[in-house]
Amino acid sequence: MLDSVLRVQALTVERDGRPAVEDVSFSLPAESDTALVGPNGAGKSTLVAALLGLVPRRTGQVELLGHRLGSDGQLPRAVRCQIAYLPQTLALQGRFPLSVAEFVGFGFDPPGPAWPWRGAASRRQAVGLALVRTGCQELGGRLLSELSGGQLKRVLLAFCVVRPRRLLVLDEAQAGLDVQATEQFQQLLLELRRQEGWTVLQVSHDLDMVRRSCDQVLCLNRRLRCSGSPDHALRPERLQELYGPNVVAYHHRHHHHPHGVGDARG
């Protein structure tokens, strides 16, 4: 088994001609749950996009599951199948004639050209299991565009868990979930890590959740400002350095655990 599922070395990514992420290096130990935190516009989503090969990088290396990410974002299909990405939401405009079960089924199919009816029986079985596992068994026949924000999040998670993976990347996946759904979500992530050896990287603004659930934190504000265990990385002086003095004042007035400020895209 690999020690590190993801290795990043001196990564710099530009957006609109300016560095959005600069000289970032870190690695994700296998079966760890790592949080990527930082203020709005810190480059968190850009970093995630670069790790997945969705945006070009200016310099640096990314190694996923022992395979180097190509300069054009290419990875072997077998590696792609083992990585799942859960975006903040889907921008569905109007009626979208796709059922939840069909959508989750696309998460099961490997990349590359294939007739849609190929492997239908095993796909159907995997979709049924994924829907049960994420508490979406009632939603299979519903249209994707008919779901509430919280239901859509659970369905996106079903899309990720419909086949065995090694790395799950979440971009503010738990924003918009109610307390019970957040708890179930975290429970499932824990189960996936402990029982199936998944590694999780999640962009989050919920520092309480990060402190409770994650075992590594990466603090990003264009550059990697600090990293380590939540107790180390989320100390008030570190947060002040990352977010500015207001967050720490808020923490002292309202909580014993600090809260960040949610945003749409970091």
């Binding site: 996009a49 090969g53 990405y85 490997p110 294939a114 007739w115």
Partner: peptide, 23 residues
């Protein structure tokens, strides 16, 4: 369109989701 149905639908839904899924 039939051979690339998965790619077409994922691309229509969310370009980054599609890219991460190997499209």
């Amino acid at each position: 369109l039939l051979l690339s149905l998965r790619a077409q639908v994922l691309l229509t839904l969310h370009a980054d989701l599609a890219g991460a899924a190997g499209v």
